[in-house]
């Protein structure tokens, strides 16, 4: 019972934090320089990890499904199937999970330690709105950077898949990607692109909320970083579930 109450309380606080983000977002002055700096830092921090996991996913997915497809004599459908799987689901989800681990935790830890060492207070007395300067810039940066990272993950992943197809089935580069783009429609790309913005927003919101409201002491900072990752990851699956349900309704129409 207590747990439920705590959960609802936390959910309510997070919601209020999110509302505050939108209120502050549209109120000048805008911390544009800090926003650009965060885009660079966050993108730079995760691009390598995202690319390498994307590549491995592409390779592994191809190797795992290939024998079955060959058995059914559906070898020719490999590129289309992999393309759909990666663009619709695997690319956005893997990227978001990697970023939840890498960016969510680092935002949680950074803001948490700024909170407990009074750096946020110091900012406030220096004529700066710390919510705007620290929170708004970070949430906005990750919301906009994550879709780009997804595009990179998708591309690298498809390239990894192509390498395997080329190795095992002598499929040429042109043939592979022609087949991929033959089946991919806007109704595949748009929903997963839109979904990525929500993923980014969720990671930024939870990381910032946990860090910004972190409790005193070094244990508080650790907890902020840890729970940022756990809650953000869980939230990603929930958003994915909802997104798939909604786009499914549109397919039916």
């Amino acid at each position: 019972m207590n747990g439920v109450k705590l959960f609802l309380q936390e959910a309510g606080e997070t919601y209020r934090f999110g509302i505050k983000f939108f209120r502050e977002l549209f109120k000048p002055p805008f911390e544009f320089r800090e926003f650009l700096r965060q885009c660079y830092i966050l993108g730079n921090k995760s691009i390598f990890l995202v690319a390498i996991t994307g590549f491995i996913m592409g390779v592994v997915l191809t190797l795992q499904t290939r024998p079955t497809m060959v058995e059914f004599g559906a070898e020719a459908y490999m590129p289309s199937m992999i393309g759909i799987a990666i663009v619709r689901e695997i690319g956005p989800m893997i990227t978001a999970l990697i970023c939840a681990g890498k960016i969510g935790s680092s935002i949680g830890a950074e803001l948490g330690s700024m909170k407990v060492t009074e750096q946020i207070d110091a900012m406030e007395v220096s004529g700066t709105n710390p919510f705007k300067y620290l929170v708004v810039t970070r949430i906005l940066a990750i919301t906009l950077v994550l879709p780009l990272l997804v595009v990179i993950a998708d591309s690298v992943s498809l390239f990894g898949s192509y390498l395997m197809e080329n190795l095992k089935g002598q499929v040429s580069f042109t043939l592979f990607f022609t087949k991929v783009f033959e089946v991919l429609e806007f109704s595949d790309i748009i929903p997963s692109f839109v979904k990525s913005f929500f993923f980014g927003f969720a990671i930024g919101l939870i990381g910032c909320y946990k860090g910004y409201t972190s409790k005193k002491g070094t244990a508080g900072v650790g907890r902020a970083a840890n729970s940022a990752v756990v809650i953000a990851s869980l939230l990603l699956f929930i958003i994915d579930f909802i997104a798939v349900m909604i786009s499914d309704i549109f397919y039916e129409l």
């Binding site: 950074e110 750096q119 110091a122």
Partner: peptide, 11 residues
Amino acid sequence: FLFQGSALYDS
């Protein structure tokens, strides 16, 4: 305001 732990910006 001189803060207790100095509160320098780490970054």
